[in-house]
Computed example of a mutant assay.
Amino acid sequence: MMFQLHKNRSFSTYINDTFLFFKMHGKSYFKNYFIINGALLLLLIAIVFFGFQFYFQTLFSNLGNPGLDSNPMVNMLTDNVGFIAFFAILIMVLFFFISVLQYAFPVIYFDLFDKKNTDDIEPSEILQSLKQKSFKIFKFFIALIFIITPIIVLIFGLNILLFFIIIGIPLFFITAPAALSWVNISFYHYLNSTDRLFPSLALGFKYLKQQFWTNVGSTMIMIIIIQIVMTIFTTIPYLLGMVNMFTDFSPQSGPINPEQFSALPMLMTVVMVISLVANYILSNLIIVNQGLIYYSQKETEENTSANHSIDLIGSDSE
């Protein structure tokens, strides 16, 4: 039994089918995901781990020595301006490349899944499709940075101004998932069709409006689920570590012993790495959810499932 991409869905179905897809085809999906993204994620994790460990160790290095004339962090930044600038640019480029690959992977996977009607998808097929569509991917992200994002920022700015009359608060919780859904639907269509950028953005907006409250509602629920899981993965380890460090501390115990905080830089670094990895993995939930919205709205427009069933009958008879 294969997961059905093309079908009309309701609010609850969008949520249920998102998790059903991972239940049925998660093994194939994440196998390809980690083969293609794994090396870059490990590189990013290593850079973030050692970078933040150095940062936090320097930050806490003068703990218990308030009489120091200079701040080690300021000295470190001053003495290594060139290296830090190069390191920051390297991190930004790596983040951008991984984010683009992370964003495009589910779209490519769904396109192959739809065309082949199977989850027997090889990493080489995904890489080949990524290579063929690399220019469109790059073009969309340039448009996202210089065209789409300024429009969204302007809308959010108006929402913030409306906070003073209360109405801006509920509007923010509507426009944020609506903007996210519009961008995702447009990207799905732009990458998996022959349409140009602006027609794809127009069609994405049309698909968003067709079931506006259903689409926005399911997007918001997925955002909430991701935030809850992120909190569990990051806050709880951090709190447990802090409680462990402060267990033996009391105001009567005298001056703070720096050794009590020797594990704090490592703890904060580990929490940052966990947060980073969890964010990248969990973002698949929302991008897959947006794919279901796209294919469902496409089904409403084109009645694709009926045509696909006819093709399957023809192939079965051969």
Results as ranks from 00 to 15, higher is better:
F3H: 05
H6V: 12
K7W: 01
F11M: 08
T18D: 00
T18W: 02
F21S: 08
F21A: 00
F21L: 02
H25W: 11
G26Y: 05
Y29W: 12
Y29C: 00
I35T: 14
I36F: 04
G38Y: 08
L44N: 04
F49W: 14
F49K: 13
F52H: 06
Y55P: 00
F56D: 13
N62A: 08
G64C: 11
G64W: 14
P66F: 05
D69L: 10
V74N: 15
T78R: 11
T78C: 01
I89G: 01
M92E: 04
V93D: 06
F96Y: 14
F96T: 07
F97K: 09
I98W: 06
I98K: 12
S99P: 00
P106H: 07
P106L: 04
I108G: 01
F110S: 02
D111H: 06
F113T: 09
K115Y: 04
K116F: 14
P123T: 10
S124T: 10
Q128M: 10
Q132V: 02
K133T: 08
I137P: 01
I137Y: 01
F138E: 10
F138R: 11
F140C: 10
F141L: 07
F146I: 05
I147W: 11
I148Q: 15
I152G: 02
L154P: 04
L158Y: 08
F164P: 00
I165H: 12
I166E: 03
I166H: 03
F173D: 06
I174S: 12
I174H: 02
I174N: 02
A179V: 02
N184V: 04
N184S: 05
S186F: 06
F187Q: 07
F187G: 01
T194D: 11
T194M: 02
T194K: 09
P199W: 04
P199R: 15
K206N: 12
Y207P: 00
Y207F: 08
Q210W: 09
N215F: 00
G217Q: 05
T219V: 03
M222R: 01
I224F: 14
V229C: 03
T234F: 13
L240P: 01
G241A: 01
M242R: 05
N244E: 10
P251A: 02
S253L: 12
G254H: 14
N257F: 05
P258A: 14
E259D: 06
P265T: 14
T269C: 04
M272T: 08
I274L: 11
L276T: 13
L276N: 03
Y280S: 06
L285C: 04
Q290D: 10
G291A: 09
G291E: 04
L292R: 05
Y294V: 00
S296D: 15
T300V: 15
E301N: 09
T304C: 00
T304D: 01
A306H: 15
N307C: 05
N307A: 11
D311W: 12
D311S: 09
I313V: 10
S315Y: 15
S317D: 12
